[in-house]
Design a protein around this nucleic acid. Structure first.
Lengths: 347, 347
DNA sequence: TAACCTTACGCAAACGTTTGCGTGTGGAAA
DNA sequence: TTTCCACACGCAAACGTTTGCGTAAGGTTA
């Protein structure tokens, strides 16, 4: 196994100095044409590639963006990453991804590791545990060391930095409005416990829509699911003998599980109950019936987040001092889990 | 914004030399207890973290594993990454992920970028384009520079290195056998074009199972799908008025699309047609009916791949010279898209 | 022939670490 | 008083780059 070839080796081989080699490869006029050609030929022959590590050390930047997400096996987060990669690659940045696995500790470790030299800035969606614990020292420390951070989706209000979010409240409100507009009146919501920020916001949107329609919300129409892995049992229990005509679920899994449970309980979607989910993932698209859902435009989020970060990374100090919050519009994708408007004149 | 604190700054502040600081932080006996404590207190106060870049440069290794996959928005690949991260983190390695987006060029660029200093070794599943183009110079070049590569799933026979695969042929054979064993006789296969190695192998497994049962394969029962994004039309056309009692699909998407198409064509799954897919992803688990499928145990693959790589990275030169191929056992997960054995005595 | 200007290259510092070895200071032993 | 030995610390090189500046050699001009 040969080792990677360095400037030093080329210099030795050609009996010139290291700086001559470096300059020759950069086509510096300081070096004679003859030498330049010789060096370049030699470099190509030995497949010379400058060592990024050395460059990073010298330039004090890595040209790398660190992305930390709560789960790697998750459609939405990967679409965001797709967006980040797109603009990062365009602008000559590398993307390094770590998952916190929803663990606070792992989030801290990952961030510290990347912050100590591996990345110039971060795009980050915080772990559940972090939201629960309300401990953000690692993020603030990172920023205080001069590394910009862009928070997305699961953000933290208390931390002052660039943010990219969707308007969860509005998205949920739109979804609920749609259910109301097709004539549903008894709308249940399947949501998460309150410390998950997006869950809470979506619940608020649901409530707001009901109030705007002068429908009083009922406690028994709200299910806050604790254990996501075991949501089917909770949903089944919740839906049992409940007189509803629509369900708004704050994520894809709750939505399909609801459809499944309804099926078992002998109710048809969308004929008996309309269902709307959140997040336009694989499941929503391919399920039978395909799910009407609120799309978060994950790729757009990634694109915006990356742009925000790179602006900060490359901007002058004026830009550096102001923080922006970008709100990505959601859109309602109508599929087959909800009735069409006017499809049932009796409602 | 304060900058990151370095040894030099601490040294200056405390009026000692850089090496004293370095040694003090490492609790070297060379340094007096008094100085050690002072330095450590100061370092903690200023939140000193050694600069990874400098360490990488000095140690000539990054403690980072590069993972390159064809698609980041893909359940199977992300589960593999999960496995890689698990063992990497245990062993003190960082994981850096890039997606090639199934593009040969992007695969080359990513690999070269990471190879020039960002990672010590690679875990890689090649892009479709690479399989088509049969150009593996980037991989061989990387290895010839002393960086180990572990190929997984979509591997390349011609490249000599460590590999982690499932036995696609056997998995497909098992699936087909299962269909045969529950009494199906007219089994169609939904597969990919031949240059996708795993598609071809799975097709072979299907054929082998049929032959073992003395059933002659029929050309008209085999559909090689070109355009994955538009598979519904192809499948619909293919299935039209076709007299079959089972379908083996080489991936999840083909399987659910088949179920959908069958539904439209008025056939029931599993009563009229049994369906088996490949890959145990979100769709298979949550679809109605839930899909019987061949699980690839993605996380296990990642774990094994990472172990293989780290062994090579940390092993002495003897280990370095031998290459292993690990075959992960697939397992058939029986769900509701296939009839139970003996459920229909007429078959 | 002397003075000067190009040309073409090398030197050295810097990025932040680690570490083997050299060395000054102090005290203890002879 | 001299000799010796710990002790506690600093020096310098190394990892691979880049780049401003210094400087030889050679040629041109007066």
């Amino acid at each position: 196994m040969k080792q990677k070839v360095t400037l030093k080796q080329i210099a030795k081989e050609l009996d010139v100095s290291i700086s001559t080699v470096s300059k020759a490869l950069k086509d510096s006029v300081e070096i004679s044409l003859d030498t330049r050609q010789k060096v370049k030929a030699f470099a190509k022959l030995y497949n010379y590639k400058p060592n990024n590590i050395a460059l990073s050390l010298k330039n004090r930047k890595t040209k790398t963006i660190g992305v930390i997400i709560p789960e790697i096996v998750h459609h939405f987060f990967t679409t965001v990453i797709g967006g980040v990669e797109k603009v990062a690659n365009e602008k000559g940045y590398n993307v390094i991804i770590c998952s916190s696995n929803n663990s606070f500790d792992k989030e801290v470790i990952n961030l510290e590791m990347l912050a100590s030299g591996s990345a110039d800035g971060f795009i980050l969606s915080v772990a559940k545990e972090t939201q629960l614990k309300k401990d953000y020292h690692h993020i603030e420390e990172t920023m205080s060391q001069g590394m910009p951070v862009v928070l997305f989706d699961r953000i933290i209000d208390e931390v002052v930095c660039d943010k990219v979010i969707i308007d969860d409240t509005k998205g949920a409100q739109t979804a609920t409005n749609h259910l109301l507009s097709i004539g549903c009146k008894k709308i249940a919501i399947l949501t998460t416990v309150d410390y998950i920020s997006v869950g809470k916001l979506r619940t608020n949107g649901y409530l707001r829509a009901l109030r705007a329609y002068d429908i009083t919300e009922k406690e028994e129409f709200i299910l806050k699911i604790e254990d996501i892995d075991n949501c089917e049992a909770e949903i089944s229990e919740f839906l049992k003998d409940k007189d509803i005509d629509a369900i708004f679920a704050v994520n894809e899994l709750f939505a399909v599980t609801a459809v499944k449970v309804l099926d078992v309980q002998g109710k048809k979607v969308p004929d008996d109950v309309s269902v709307i989910g959140f997040t336009d993932g694989i499941l929503s698209k391919h399920f039978i019936p395909s799910l009407t859902t609120v799309s978060q435009h994950g790729e757009d989020m990634g694109i915006r987040a990356a742009k925000l970060l790179i602006d900060k990374l490359e901007g002058d100090d004026e830009v550096t001092e102001e923080y922006r919050t970008v709100i990505i519009d959601t859109s309602l994708i109508q599929r087959k889990s909800t009735k069409k408007i006017g499809s049932d004149p009796n409602n």
